[in-house]
Design a protein around this nucleic acid. Structure first.
Lengths: 353, 353
DNA sequence: ATGAAAGCGCTAACAG
DNA sequence: CTGTTAGCGCTTTCAT
């Protein structure tokens, strides 16, 4: 069995209180005895038992994260930055993943009741009103990532603005018939991105052809932010919209990949026939030359952790709702200026048809 | 403050022992009082304190995972399956990520000493001999994933066999000059994949041109299993090897993506000029039509968890070293049979040059 | 500065 | 079947 504080105390001929002081370098201890105790502790390979410490201190030094496990690039990158930010502190990360949406509440309940953690990071998940209050009542700090709630801290992407920028880019390139492929509207970011998209069109006096040019559905229960959904959506768009829009804003890069696959199969060339802007800037966006809105994922994670730790440590209160801006990364999927001029003409032609 | 077992006991007019029995549905309790206690517990929103339970039971119901955070698709997929397997049990997952390799030992030390967990999953990380013994001495079950150690349980891919199969596929297609781009040889899988590759060539009487056709380096300290490394390696291969090999086995799909990018830039067509086989079958392999060795990642995770839980629960001992086979997924990056015949000819020509 | 003792919230052995 | 008590390993008063 591993050595306990009693073993150290006995061998050092002191009380356990003194050992505790030595370990936690309390100022109320003689430097000599402290050194001696530490030496003995070392010799015995003594390591404080984390759980016992937590129980006595009423402080677990772990933070919990609730993540939907869509194996999406976004979540990995986010977790990575969370982990990195945490590794500088003395907190461990415990992972609760929600595979099926209906388990969300049960998972959150568990986090709430087990009291295994000092704070919670909830990623991309909506929080029912009742729960927000539970967290507050339990005095358990929470910060939402990629989502919003009045009563809870949050850091998210400025989705509306990002979508607006994406659409504006397309408009600036001269496009007039612009479509959008989105995730399911039950997703909060999906909703906002649609709003931003619509806003951009309307502000430029373009008509927002909701019925034919905007595809928001995905299989029920899924967000539709994946390759297959993008593929299916693009197929539908090709089938239902004549002529095809000259440009497309796709709510996520992974969907974009599916869109590209469907386009290729249908002989739709990118960017010649169709300009494409994605959202996220996943690793492979660069590889396929996709123009996209880059999310500052790492910054989000870092910020969320920083805020959570501050809340846990009692400094800092008040509302906290950060929105980080997405950045337009121009690559080849919208064509070059030249290509654009050429295409404008053919666009005009196709509109005349 | 949340209700404790004492609150419930007092309100129910019983001792805390009885409450404990009710909660943990012990058989030694009157069904009537049990129901009454449970009702009261419910009413008080009583939830046992996980840490206190752990301390008293000497059982934490959490398992720790040590993961290198390369944000590699492999790790996400693996964690996902681990998480899924765990969600059926009563174990939580605590995540220790090792960002810099030199922190590996410190992290493992921590897992070992904190005694926060009942078992450990170590992913893709080598374990120094000293540590294996420490784990055993501490009675802390471990299973290694994607790695091997004599004294520890492990589940891994049959890397050697997989590489062998990949190379054999290329050979079967008629290629005679075959190159390989690998990760850094400090990586265990990289080493095995090279062995398998070499074995296949030698078994078919081809010469294994180590010096010019095999590129194993990456930046020091990194495994080199990423897009940039693949890109760089391919550039080097193009520069140093005349003529270019007709086929290439690349040790991972992400590297393959980099290889493809470099090839494209250099005007090397795939599969016409160069046949390509990857390893992993990441999500985007399908998208780019990459022929590759599919790793049964989910099965690995599941298996590792199953084994770990068995070990924790004391049943099952003895050695456990599973190797799962990778499966060849044929797509377009090696060309079709027809294309192959054509290319054989040009290969012959280029060899005559 | 240090030792003793009282928790932290729960489980489990021991009497009844 | 149930109450009492002694831990689990550590922190933290409270005296001294």
């Amino acid at each position: 069995m591993a050595a306990t504080i009693y073993d150290v105390a006995k061998k050092a001929g002191v009380g356990i209180g003194t050992v505790s002081r030595a370990i936690n370098n309390s100022p109320h201890i003689n430097v000599g005895t402290k050194a001696r105790i530490l030496a003995i502790a070392n010799e015995l390979h003594y390591q404080p038992h984390a759980l016992a410490q937590s129980l006595a201190r009423k402080k677990t030094n772990t933070i919990a994260s609730v993540v939907p496990f869509f194996t999406n690039y976004f979540y990995v990158e986010l977790l990575k930055s969370v982990q990195r930010a945490l590794s500088r502190s003395h907190y461990d990360l415990i992972l609760f993943s929600v595979d099926r949406m209906n388990r969300r509440d049960r998972t959150i309940d568990r986090v709430l009741s087990e009291r295994r953690c000092d704070g919670v990071l909830i990623i991309s998940l909506g929080v029912m009103d009742g729960y927000a209050e539970k967290f507050i009542a339990a005095g358990l700090p929470v910060v939402l990532i990629d989502h919003m709630h009045q009563a809870l801290d949050s850091v998210a992407i400025a989705n509306r603005e990002g979508a607006f920028a994406a659409a504006s880019h397309l408009i600036g390139l001269g496009h007039r018939r612009i479509g959008m492929i989105n995730g399911h509207l039950s997703s909060y970011p999906a909703k906002l991105r649609l709003e931003g998209f619509r806003l951009a069109l309307e502000m430029h006096g373009l008509d927002f052809d909701d019925r034919d040019l905007v595809i928001c559905d995905a299989k029920a229960g899924e967000h539709g932010f994946n390759e297959a959904a993008g593929y299916a959506a693009m197929q539908r768009l090709i089938a239902q919209s004549h002529p095809l829009p000259g440009a497309l804003f796709v709510a996520s890069d992974v969907q974009c990949l599916g869109v590209m696959r469907a386009a290729k199969e249908a002989g739709v060339r990118i960017p010649q026939d169709l300009a494409l802007v994605g959202f996220d800037d996943i690793e492979f966006a660069k590889f396929v030359g996709l123009t996209t809105m880059r999310q500052p994922i790492a910054a989000m994670g870092r910020m969320a952790v920083t805020r959570l730790l501050k809340r846990i440590e009692g400094r800092e209160n008040g509302d906290f709702h950060r929105e980080l801006e997405a950045e337009l990364i121009v690559r080849e999927s919208c064509g070059s200026r030249q290509a654009f001029h050429v295409r404008t003409e053919s666009d005009t032609v196709s509109q005349q048809v």
